[in-house]
Design a protein around this nucleic acid. Sequence first.
DNA 1: GCCGTTTTCGGCCCGACTGTTTTCAGTCG
Length: 574
Amino acid sequence: MQNKEIAKIFLEIAELLELKEGNRFKIRAYENAARNIENFEQNLEGIYKKSGLKGLEELEGVGESIAHKIEEFIKYKKIKKHQDLLKEFPKGFLALVDIPGMGPKTAMKLHKELNINSVTDLEKAVKKGLLKNLPGFKEKKQENIKKGIELKKKSRGRYLISEANEFADSLIKQLKNLKEADKIEVAGSLRRRQETIGDIDILVTAKKPEIVMDSFTQLPEVRRVLAKGETKSSVILNNNMQSDLRVLNPDEFGSALHYFTGNKQHNIKIRELAIKKGLKVSEYGLFKGDKKIAGKVEKELFDALGLQYIPPELRQGLEELETAKEGKIPKLIELSDIKGDLQMHSTHSDGKNTIKEMAEYAKNLGYSYIAITDHSISERIANGQSEKELFKAFDEIDKLNARLKEFKILKGVEVDILPDGSLDFSDDILKECDVVLAAVHSGFKMPQDKMTKRIIKALQNKYVNIMAHPTGRLINERDPYDVDVHEMLKAASDTGTFMEINAHPKRLDLKDVHIKIAKEMGILFAISTDSHATISLENMKYGVSMARRGWTTKNDVINTLPIDKLLKKLYSKR
DNA sequence: GCCGTTTTCGGCCCGACTGTTTTCAGTCG
Ligand SMILES: Nc1nc2c(ncn2[C@H]2C[C@H](O)[C@@H](COP(=O)(O)OP(=O)(O)OP(=O)(O)O)O2)c(=O)[nH]1
Ligand SMILES: [Mg+2]
Ligand SMILES: [Mg+2]
Ligand SMILES: [Zn+2]
């Protein structure tokens, strides 16, 4: 998607202006535009072609000047201001400010004083010990820069939410052993259930913060202490992940949790709203002059600002404040609303457990149904089943269903969408299924119009109930295939096909922004784990979180329905 | 550079920690 390239350019303009000590609000304007463009779900070129500059300016953070620059990029694939700024600095210079602890001021100083043009130059200078001779520099600063370079090299980027969850649980478990720790909560992107996580943010309330700080910085998984103060510490863990801890007073819990949950843009908007009301918000509370008027719990803070409570998943710094002002934040779906799981695999294709084992595990989760959706024949690498094998599995399901009480196994299949848009099984076979999932598993590298037509053709099949992992992305591994998501959603809406929210932490597909627009189009979802083993049935929570980030309620999701209503919904397309 | 149920001009979040400084700048959350 072109938006990513455009966002990157504006971010670079911001960085370059920072090096030149430009106006910091102008810099922030470029940063804001970059972030909003990056997270925008429609292609800017499409918007421009349809609605011109005015269309672009509808985007938050995009005004006349930036809209013109977007236009420039669409026409010429580059932006002059960006090119001109780049020319003022050596190639590779921007990488310097990516080093933790190095900001624009330090980078420029080293550039001017020591002619440092790149990270390689910097490494050499550090090795020779040249930095500590500069005014304002001593041994420690040089050492920190050296460590910063090492850290940058080791850092693995962003983590899957499941990985971060595991690390966080381990840290929290140990903090819970401290009797000095009052409340302990995960905060930051992990509490917002963002699809990837940069670091682990933890909030503790305590009357004696020093003891908590000491313990945290001495945990066995801590490799390095980046900073340690009275209310805040940062460490690097053995797995190279960063963890930030804030420790505040118990009566500051609400405002502290709100601050530390973010996101940053949401915080800024909250604080701006407070200013308009003659108030001030910080992690220490909501203040009117010197008087604290809220902060014990989050709800108190929202109340005092005239806002409905905003669940963490919605705190994205977008339109959630406006919606909360109007009292229109919906009651989001919860894990306990889920009554069944509509995508999983068994030993009949590439799953590790039998149908019976999957059913029993699901029943123990409190579900009243599952669908077994093994792969179709073309999926050779995933041991796709032939028609004969499929019906053998269905016989097995009939026998199990006869014995299971208050639980039903649905006969399903995850059928491949072949490159021409036809399906891997004929309608004669599909009509024997209770639920049919269609998915793209091969031929990813197709031009957008072909891929879009391919998928739409599949959605038009009256037996296809659910489009599985609709964009095909694998987080940190594989980009989505090139499909026009809007056209796909339109087809889903026209044909009464449901969209999957795949709960696997590597997929999370559809993702939040797409879920949101699909919901606005009236599309219903199936949140499914795509499990290949019983334990993965536990991934449902990640799918529900993604659904919540897309503003969905219980009514938007078909696997919250009791079995009779679900079956009716599934058969209604035929 | 963006934005507007008090504004089309004049605001733009607020605070912690470090290293270096003798009062604060830089970086980060
Ligand atoms: N008010 C305010 N709050 C901030 C700022 N930067 C960070 N925060 C708050 C909101 C963030 O969600 C929270 C944790 O900061 P992080 O840098 O860890 O960001 P976050 O966890 O949101 O994303 P991440 O996945 O770690 O990149 O601290 C800021 O500049 N101003
Ligand atoms: Mg974080
Ligand atoms: Mg953090
Ligand atoms: Zn699949």
